[in-house]
Nucleic acid binder design. Structure first.
Lengths: 173, 173
DNA sequence: CCATAAACGTTTGTCTCACCAACGAAATGT
DNA sequence: ACATTTCGTTGGTGAGACAAACGTTTATGG
């Protein structure tokens, strides 16, 4: 996962700063967001790789811990992983004994995925690991600033999530 | 650029460690960053697509405007685009008449890429377009909050950029 | 009841994107 | 002069997001 470079790599030496617009080009929020997210992704990826895990492993384990055993289809909806790709994730988790895949007797189309005790331990490890990564990522920020950042991001996400709802789910649909 | 206004009054959700970890899983900064950046990327991508452009088109045009004509290799270093991929970008920009590719008489290995008047106009269009996208992206935030966000992100990026320098470039290298 | 439709897990394929390898052409260093 | 390096270009790799289609099983509706 250490393959994200970025579209930046420039230094801030904009000697031609005659305009606010010119200075703003480098500091476009969308750009800063992209770069920062890339950095975060790199750190997370490396951290998880060191624990023989990936992003989706963690997502599945968390989903299972939060809402209990579920079919792959349900898990796919809850985590956002495409059901095609989820197969491999479950395979890998099962290989490591973090999860069990059993046919559902009540509906023989489904597989019931259950987290194991070992899986819970693993998830706990990853929790700590990821907390450490957040700390590393946000190192230059004070606790108050970190809260600010997450709050701002959450508000942006919320805004667009609701906007998306109005478009498709519709106000009267 | 004063980096911090007073960071005091963010809404403190809680200070409890263990519960915050559980509740924080959903709110992991790295996750929020990823989602927000994805949203930003989508908006930017759609916006640019509507103007028959892509991210790297803009990056190249900006680089050319800022530092004048350059070879593809130089352009590659300045934008972070791999020189392999840059070929296609220049092709597309040249097709649209936004850029001109001419052999360098002084060094016949090089191509000198020059932005055209049309390219400048195009870049200006994209500037406005992207400004609009930023506005759309940050819609729920006040101007002060937007500045806060970009400042926080810039500080994070700066921190990690310098950390990377120490690792490879080295203080004494 | 039975036929049709839908949901499930899986395999396979497509598309994009960052990245690398190697090539011929041309310049540079020794 | 020769080896080394740089440049533009082509082609390919590997990962990730997504879609299509298939066999199996369950639900639906005449």
């Amino acid at each position: 996962m250490s393959k994200k470079a970025d579209t930046g790599a420039g230094d801030m030496t904009d000697g031609s700063g005659d305009r606010a617009a010119a200075a703003g080009l480098r500091g476009l929020p969308s750009r800063l967001l992209g770069l920062t997210a890339a950095q975060a992704d790199r750190l997370v990826g490396e951290g998880l790789a060191g624990a023989d895990a990936r992003k989706w492993h963690y997502a599945v384990l968390v989903a299972l811990q939060e809402s209990g055993p579920a079919s792959q289809a349900t898990l796919s909806r809850r985590t956002g992983i495409y059901r095609s790709d989820l197969v491999a994730v479950i395979n890998e988790l099962a290989e490591r004994g973090h999860v069990e895949r059993a046919p559902d007797p009540a509906d023989r189309r489904r597989n019931v995925i259950t987290i194991t005790t070992q899986g819970r331990r693993h998830a706990q490890r990853l929790d700590k690991l990821l907390a450490g990564v957040q700390d590393q990522l946000l190192a230059p920020l004070s606790p108050a600033e970190r809260t600010q950042l997450t709050s701002l991001l959450a508000r942006i996400l919320d805004h667009h999530a609701q906007a998306a709802r109005r478009a498709s789910g519709g106000p009267s649909a």
